[in-house]
């Protein structure tokens, strides 16, 4: 290990991400948290480039840091910035998180070390993708060929997820949704439903 080990870069980026997440947890301004979330996504995209996942990095930068933030801002234009408030059940939250985190870290102890080329993950199916996909699909980018062919069905599912979300958003706030909002509020009072 040298001081110039490229691993330092991802250590540094990860440290940055931790700081950002920590600040988000502390912040009371929702707007600022959304912005920091965008930065968090961008940092992760940078990390993905270093980790050889260029396709993912590109998607994360555009979807996570771009579209996601825009969607948040759009929604927040309809939701007035609420007043600051203390935390609810901080102790419970902390306990749950510490327990889950401890379990996860315990779980890593038996894992192959980071980047180990002999890890089972790299030897079984992945190896076959790398060796067979060019012949089968004629696409040099293995991520693309797996996405489009071997696991093309996942991609169909993914499209369906987007479609589902689109319909869901449409049914919730599509068209003249405000009519639909007032009606239940009135019905609520009329029936005196408790």
């Amino acid at each position: 290990m040298t001081l110039f080990d490229p691993a330092w870069i991802d250590v540094a980026i990860l440290a940055f991400m931790a700081i950002v997440a920590f600040v988000v947890a502390l912040l009371r301004s929702v707007f600022a948290s959304v912005m920091l979330m965008g930065i968090f996504s961008l940092l992760s995209a940078t990390l993905f480039v270093i980790l050889d996942a260029v396709d993912v990095a590109f998607t994360e930068a555009s979807v996570g840091a771009g579209i996601s933030v825009v969607v948040f801002l759009g929604a927040m234009s309809l939701i007035p910035s609420p007043k600051a408030h203390g935390r609810t059940r901080p102790l419970l939250g902390a306990l749950v998180c510490i327990a889950c985190g401890a379990l996860l870290i315990l779980g890593t102890l038996d894992m192959p070390t980071y980047g180990d080329p002999q890890a089972p993950i790299h030897l079984h199916v992945a190896d076959r993708y790398l060796s067979e996909s060019l012949e089968a699909t004629d696409v040099p980018n293995v991520v693309t060929s797996v996405l489009a062919s071997y696991r093309g069905y996942d991609t169909l599912g993914e499209t369906t997820v987007i479609f589902t979300a689109a319909i869901a958003v449409l049914i919730l706030i599509g068209g003249s949704w405000r009519d639909g909002v007032k009606a239940p509020a009135r019905a609520d009072k009329e029936t005196g439903d408790a």
């Binding site: 996942d154 599912g157 319909i167 869901a168 239940p184």
Partner: peptide, 26 residues
């Protein structure tokens, strides 16, 4: 993993369907 994708399809549609209840608590 494919299971996760379908889990999300059913989950997202369920969230929206539940929200269609008449009371605002839906």
């Amino acid at each position: 993993f494919n299971l996760f994708v379908f889990l999300e399809i059913s989950s997202l549609s369920t969230y929206a369907l539940v929200a269609m209840g008449r009371d605002r608590r839906a």
